[in-house]
Design a binder for these strands. Sequence first.
DNA 1: TTACGATATGGAGACATTCTCCACTTAGCA
DNA 2: TGCTAAGTGGAGAATGTCTCCATATCGTAA
Lengths: 183, 183
Amino acid sequence: MGEAGLRADAERNRQRILAAAEELFLERGASVSLDEVAKRAKVGAGTLYRRFPTREALLAATSNERFMSVAEASRGRDADHEPDDALRRFLEAFALNASVYRSLAASLGTVIQHRTPGCNAITEEGHRLLRRAKEAGVLRQDASFDDIVCVVSAISIAVEKESAPVPRVAHLVDLLFNGMRER
Amino acid sequence: MGEAGLRADAERNRQRILAAAEELFLERGASVSLDEVAKRAKVGAGTLYRRFPTREALLAATSNERFMSVAEASRGRDADHEPDDALRRFLEAFALNASVYRSLAASLGTVIQHRTPGCNAITEEGHRLLRRAKEAGVLRQDASFDDIVCVVSAISIAVEKESAPVPRVAHLVDLLFNGMRER
DNA sequence: TTACGATATGGAGACATTCTCCACTTAGCA
DNA sequence: TGCTAAGTGGAGAATGTCTCCATATCGTAA
């Protein structure tokens, strides 16, 4: 949670920035002015930029706990779900959490590359599910984690405007998982 | 090509803006400063904004011919290709042309809604292919044109960083069209 | 040809946002 | 208690968007 090697007052400010960013991202989307985030956190702009050099780094940080949850829930489902079902549920949860802030999905590809615990966890879990589904023979051998990020982005972008995201995400995951083809 | 009801000098300026924008978009991506576009076109900023009120309007205009080509080529393929193959090729061509400028893909959803000839043509052709594939029973009934735009955007975004976009586009279209499942 | 209204123009400048820099403050240790 | 490394705020430079309007030019009707 806290960032290692940070002075106590600095860590306090860091938390205030995260709280302010979370509020503003929820209210007005992932594109709000960062100076405004600093202002709401009662912190100078320099402090914000020193701690989070880019908007994506801040997004990765505010998404950290959500991404951890997605990975953890997926690991917990492992025992009582078939590999393809586990992967499908993971995709749904990932997509839903990649659209909590408007305009987050568009930069998901960049955000997910940050080495925060949450991004690491979700990346590892994605790779694990991919491997497991391939071994079970229910997934194409040439599907990669990058493909997953691409698919999740597409779904999240499509879903951001919707008033009822959950069923729409389920529909789109089904569509892209099983293919647009009639069988 | 020329815009109806425009004074001759205004139409000349409009063409100069389009040429300058095309150059700069190719060189440095779809996010270049619009003032710089105006400067290269040797035109005041006001002139640019009067003719193209938003960046997306300008992008729709510079993409016009490419979009026309995509639609036309697709229509030409109609006779000697099965409905699913025709749709797949259309998706590939659309995605490739939605990534000619870096960062164009991110605003594709907005760009495509402009009522330029190219946007109209590509939208109509998309609907036609969708209908044809559904009638032939090779496409799920619940796939929509919005789904297509969403999928094409995601593919184009994913592909913008690649050095070899063509095979990657083909892979992603195949993946999303046929599904991630082993069959 | 002229003259006149409609159209079109440029670019200064108001405003917003990003991001840096550094004189000053503070925490934490010896 | 005093020292130093760590941290801070916020002014302001750099960049970009977009508007406004005094001025210029086009095209036409007489």
